[in-house]
Amino acid sequence: MQPYQADPSSQINAALDGIKALVISLDGVLTDGTITLDGEGREMPALFARDLAGIREALRLGMKVAVIAGRLAGAYRQMLEAAGPVDLFLDGEEPLEAFEAFKNRHGLQDEECACIADDIDDLELLKKAGLPVTPINGAEYLRNRVAYISVFEGGRGCVREIVEMILDHQNRWEYSEKQASAE
Rank of each mutant, 00 (worst) to 15 (best):
3 P>T: 05
4 Y>M: 10
5 Q>R: 08
5 Q>N: 01
6 A>L: 03
10 S>K: 10
13 N>A: 11
16 L>W: 02
17 D>S: 13
18 G>V: 00
19 I>L: 08
19 I>M: 14
19 I>Y: 02
19 I>S: 12
21 A>F: 07
24 I>D: 12
27 D>E: 05
28 G>N: 07
28 G>P: 05
29 V>M: 00
31 T>P: 09
33 G>S: 05
34 T>Q: 12
37 L>Y: 07
37 L>K: 13
38 D>M: 06
39 G>R: 09
40 E>C: 09
41 G>F: 03
42 R>P: 02
44 M>V: 08
45 P>I: 00
46 A>C: 06
46 A>M: 03
48 F>L: 05
51 D>M: 05
52 L>R: 04
54 G>L: 00
55 I>R: 11
56 R>C: 00
57 E>P: 09
58 A>F: 09
63 M>K: 12
66 A>Y: 05
67 V>D: 08
68 I>N: 09
70 G>D: 10
74 G>Q: 09
74 G>T: 14
76 Y>F: 14
77 R>E: 15
78 Q>K: 11
79 M>K: 06
82 A>L: 11
83 A>F: 00
84 G>A: 10
84 G>W: 06
85 P>M: 09
85 P>Y: 09
87 D>A: 10
88 L>P: 11
88 L>Q: 06
89 F>Y: 06
91 D>S: 12
93 E>R: 08
93 E>T: 03
93 E>L: 01
94 E>W: 06
96 L>D: 12
96 L>W: 00
97 E>S: 09
97 E>N: 05
98 A>F: 01
98 A>G: 08
100 E>F: 01
101 A>Q: 15
101 A>P: 12
102 F>Y: 09
105 R>Y: 00
105 R>K: 15
109 Q>P: 01
109 Q>M: 13
110 D>T: 06
111 E>T: 11
112 E>R: 06
112 E>Y: 14
115 C>P: 04
115 C>E: 03
116 I>S: 02
117 A>N: 08
119 D>R: 03
120 I>R: 04
121 D>K: 08
122 D>V: 02
123 L>E: 15
123 L>P: 00
126 L>G: 07
126 L>E: 14
128 K>H: 11
128 K>A: 10
129 A>S: 14
130 G>I: 01
132 P>G: 11
132 P>S: 15
134 T>A: 07
135 P>R: 01
135 P>E: 14
136 I>Q: 13
137 N>M: 01
138 G>I: 00
140 E>K: 09
140 E>M: 10
141 Y>W: 08
142 L>F: 00
144 N>E: 06
145 R>C: 01
146 V>G: 15
148 Y>C: 04
149 I>T: 11
150 S>T: 11
150 S>F: 02
151 V>D: 13
152 F>Y: 14
158 C>L: 02
158 C>A: 15
159 V>W: 08
160 R>N: 13
160 R>G: 07
164 E>T: 05
165 M>L: 15
166 I>D: 12
168 D>P: 01
169 H>W: 03
171 N>P: 01
